[in-house]
Design a protein around this nucleic acid. Structure first.
Length: 220
DNA sequence: ATCCCGAGGG
DNA sequence: CCCTCTGGAT
């Protein structure tokens, strides 16, 4: 099976078995999405959604957030992973947007990654969701799932995974494919003990062939 | 115990 | 490349 055929099989499978999201980040504009995505690292969307309403009420735009002090913002983020870092990142991000980008959230990956707390994954999410740019955000789910089902070959970094996926996925499907991979990784192809019995991708899955398939010795 | 749509610094 | 940050749900 060629890699092209493998991609065709996977994309066709997801088209017919589109995974459903239980919770997603709630936002009304690019500013709110950026804040929510920065907060979402190592944290469930559900918990992010519990904290953002208070943040958006207190700081309705980047200008307001740029004037926040650490002690004001920290309590609103306290219940999320890495509250110290995220508080600093949010304020630093807002200050830079105001000072360097005239109060407008920049909409290129190169500019976005200049912002504190914004790495390549977050920049790809913002540009693809807000501006419909065909960019692929590679988080832990996309990285793991792509490797398991053979969409990537010897990809050891998120950037390598991103490039290989973009090479084979049609531009108009990049956005939805990203969502499919995320949700498949979150609910079926989970990190520890993937639910292979619920997965129709077994025929192309290297992980299944190697570690789960009956009669084949597990490697770990 | 282990997992959640990572980023920054060494 | 590695490590740290760091809270809540299951």
């Amino acid at each position: 099976m060629t890699r092209k055929e493998r991609y065709a099989f996977v994309l066709d499978y997801f088209k017919q078995h589109a995974p459903n999201a239980e919770t997603e980040l709630i936002y009304d504009n690019p500013y709110q999405l950026l804040v929510a995505v920065i907060l979402s690292a190592q944290c469930t969307d559900k918990r992010v959604n519990m904290t953002t309403p208070a943040i958006f009420e207190e700081y309705p735009d980047v200008e307001a957030l740029s004037h926040a002090t650490f002690d004001e913002l920290f309590p609103l983020i306290r219940s999320i992973s890495y509250p110290n870092n995220k508080t600093k990142h949010l304020i630093g991000m807002a200050k830079m947007v105001v000072d360097k980008f005239h109060g407008e959230i920049p909409m290129t990956v190169e500019e976005l990654v200049e912002l504190p707390g914004v790495g390549r994954k977050t920049a790809n999410v913002i540009t693809s969701v807000v501006d419909n740019q065909p960019n692929m955000a590679v988080d832990t789910h996309v990285f793991r799932v792509a490797a398991r089902i053979g969409l990537t070959l010897n990809a050891t970094t998120p950037l390598a995974t991103e490039k290989q996926l973009l090479e084979f996925i049609p531009k108009e499907l990049v956005h939805i494919a990203h969502h499919w991979l995320i949700l498949h990784g979150r609910y079926i192809c989970i990190a520890r003990t993937p639910k292979c019995d619920e997965c129709g991708l077994k025929p192309v899955c290297k992980y299944y062939q190697k570690n789960v398939k009956p009669g084949v010795k597990a490697i770990g």
